[in-house]
């Protein structure tokens, strides 16, 4: 007969579990979490080929962990960056440990970044992922916020797609507080208040020609 065993060296907890006191749900209709369900099939006329339709509906929890301050900052209308106390490099998107091998994974410190940026590079999208199609055309820029050593991607609003320029100054604009969800879509870039577009040129004409059918196509989307 087996003897009862007492576990003596119980593993220490890595950290205390957070107590979540604020919770918000904005689940769109149709997310039912039914898991894996076969919902139909089709068979060819000659009975040699069958396709079966599998619906996969799951809710993921993205645990932001040590990156959380950035996403909580968005809810408050702030851009939080991190900074290395040893080499002084700063980042948005954030790094919780320094990228410089000489700093040997030094833990970084949180800093509030200014709500201004500069375009590093840009593109004008006429096609996108399923969830973004209705917002086309989209001006996507990689921009440098404050003294960040890296560029962050986000949409640029408030100008014609053909007017975007390299190095143009930007401001960061947040959605109204009640619409924010703690994701990078809570903010976008807009041209700085004193910025004016340059006159039309050959490249701008080309982009305009490419973009005009996109406006028409989006109107046809359900």
């Amino acid at each position: 007969m087996m003897e009862a065993v007492t576990i003596k060296n119980k593993k220490n907890k890595f950290s205390e579990a957070p107590v979540f006191t604020e919770k918000k749900e904005y689940r769109p209709e149709g997310v039912n979490e039914t898991g894996l369900t076969f919902i139909g099939h089709e068979i060819s006329e000659d009975k040699t080929t069958m396709n079966q339709f599998l619906h996969y509906d799951q809710l993921y929890t993205i645990r932001h962990g040590w990156n959380s301050k950035f996403f909580i900052g968005l809810l408050d209308g702030k851009i939080m960056g991190t900074h290395c106390p040893r080499c002084g490099d700063s980042w948005v998107p954030v790094r919780t440990h320094c990228w410089n091998l000489d700093c040997n994974l030094q833990k970084t410190e949180w800093v509030e970044m200014p709500l201004t940026a500069k375009v590093h590079t840009w593109t004008v999208a006429g096609w996108s992922g399923r969830s973004s199609l209705k917002r086309l055309p989209i001006i996507l820029v990689y921009a440098i916020i404050g003294n960040s050593k890296v560029a962050i991607a986000n949409e640029l609003h408030g100008l014609k797609p053909w007017d975007v320029e390299f190095d143009m100054p930007l401001k960061i604009v947040f959605k109204p507080k009640e619409q924010r969800i703690g994701a990078v879509t809570d903010f976008h870039f807009e041209p700085a208040d004193n910025w004016k577009p340059s006159p039309m040129n050959k490249e701008k004409d080309r982009i305009k020609k490419l973009v005009e059918p996109v406006y028409e196509w989006v109107k046809t989307l359900k």
Binding site: I62, H64, N67, F71, P93, A125, W127, S128, G129, S131, S132, I138, L140, I152, A153, N154, E155, A183, V184, T185
Partner: peptide, 9 residues
């Protein structure tokens, strides 16, 4: 976390 929802492909 940073790129999928802005532009996204």
């Amino acid at each position: 976390r940073y790129e999928l929802m802005v532009g996204g492909i």
